[in-house]
Amino acid sequence: MNQASWALVPKGRWIEVAGTPLTSLDAELKAALPGHRDLGSQGLAGVINAYSGVAVDAPHARWWAFGGGHADSSNNGLYRFDMAQMRWSIEQLPDNSANWAGANYVDPYSYYPPAAGYARAHPDSDVFWDEFFDPDRPAASTGNPVARHTYNGLIYNPDLQEVAFGVRRMWRYSLRTRTWKRHTPFNTPGATYSGETGYGGAAGWTFWDEVTHRYFFGPTENYNYSRWWSFDTDDQSWKWEVVTPPAWFFAQMVRVDRKLVSFPNPQSAYGTFPPRLVTYDLDTTKWETLLLESNLELSRCYSEYFEGMILTYVASRQRYVAAFRYDGDGDGAFEYRTFEIDPGTLELREAPEYEAGAFGGWHDLVKNRFFYLATLDALIYVRKGEENLRVFRLP
């Protein structure tokens, strides 16, 4: 893609870019690892589809995917998409499943049994079941993280040139050395690692603060009472944080300047109606709730289990674009509706101009795979691993 070809992209509607699914790498992957087999049910598509997000390098219009886990995919490779080339590539190959023979490695594929067994037998070690540690199979003992749902927890750090996440333990992939490094929260031995000792669960966020050189990890997306925690990359210290209220139901969160801004699903059961923004100031460490003016009716808000909140910030318009299930027609369908939030007037209005219905609509497990690229003034939507990229060039 270049300036001339981008100028040909129509504005104000979603387009689908042919030949851009993650699964387009399947042949290349099998050629690089002869005999490799994904033990999960979804194959390569499951890296994205299994409750996983992406790590975005917005200035360079590229992003990374790492995910899978549970029954969906055992693939723990790291994959990169570059909009300049409009294609996926392999950043790091996954571990070879042939090396796991006899390890009793079955669903969930975010749990490696030999590592778990070692942690139980050696309670003072820092080994945990989220890594490939295997004394009996040296070829399998790579020290790489096992596949897992990354939710919104995957992030690109431009200062340290790495991709990181805080799902379960903290893992950092150096784009310079092409190696993984792990950190156990609060230096807790793997055998006793838990929510009270920093276990990040499997549904949190990760943010990087370039001023304090700290990573922030939030396990609060799925009504998890475990607290936020942070890691200082300068002195390797850990700290408990209070970034959001102790518990709420599903939400999405984005960073805008020095604030983290979250939009919980509007409903009554968990105190998120009227609709609101919840903000956290990285400098003052204070959070606040901003109630929004809207025409939403509580009776039409979806009150069942729901983790399909969608949110991004469009800097060129100084607006948020959000989507969630709402019974707008009053027929009980609770279809996805798209909205725009004005942070200046604190108004939420329906915004059908951003609807993605022509390409399958919003997806309940999209996580942070819907985002804005300022360099292109466009919205990007990575819907599923087996589907093409969606692009919305702003008018």
Rank of each mutant, 00 (worst) to 15 (best):
N2S: 14
Q3V: 13
A4V: 14
W6E: 04
K11V: 07
E16C: 13
L22R: 01
L22S: 02
T23K: 05
S24I: 02
E28P: 01
L33C: 03
P34L: 06
R37E: 15
L44F: 10
A45Q: 10
A45Y: 09
G46T: 12
V47F: 11
Y51V: 02
V54Q: 01
V56C: 06
A58Y: 13
A58V: 14
G68I: 03
G69P: 07
S73T: 10
S73M: 11
N75E: 06
D82V: 08
M86Y: 08
I90H: 06
P94S: 04
D95N: 06
N96D: 15
A98Y: 02
N99D: 15
Y105I: 04
S110V: 05
Y111G: 02
Y112H: 06
G117T: 12
Y118A: 08
H122A: 11
D126K: 15
D130T: 03
P135T: 12
T142W: 05
N144V: 04
V146G: 02
V146W: 04
R148W: 01
T150K: 00
T150S: 10
Y151H: 06
L160N: 11
L160S: 11
G166S: 05
G166T: 01
R169V: 01
M170S: 00
W171N: 01
R172N: 09
S174W: 08
T177C: 07
T177A: 13
R178T: 14
T179N: 14
H183D: 02
T188H: 09
F207K: 00
W208N: 08
R214Y: 05
R214P: 01
F216H: 03
G218N: 07
P219C: 06
N224M: 01
N224Q: 04
Y225I: 06
W228G: 05
W229G: 03
Q236Y: 07
Q236E: 14
K239H: 10
V242G: 12
V242M: 13
F249R: 01
F250T: 04
A251P: 02
D257N: 15
V261L: 05
P275F: 04
R276M: 15
R276L: 15
T279P: 11
L282F: 07
E288P: 03
L290G: 05
L290K: 13
L291A: 12
E293W: 07
S294G: 09
N295C: 09
Y302L: 14
S303Y: 10
M309K: 09
L311V: 11
L311P: 08
S316T: 12
R317I: 07
Q318I: 07
F324C: 05
G330M: 09
D331Q: 12
T338K: 04
F339R: 02
E340F: 07
I341S: 02
D342V: 04
P343S: 05
T345Y: 06
E347T: 12
R349E: 11
E350K: 10
Y354P: 00
G357N: 15
G357I: 08
L365I: 07
F370L: 10
Y372Q: 05
T375V: 12
T375S: 14
L376G: 04
D377F: 05
V382T: 02
E386Y: 13
E386I: 11
V391R: 01
R393F: 09
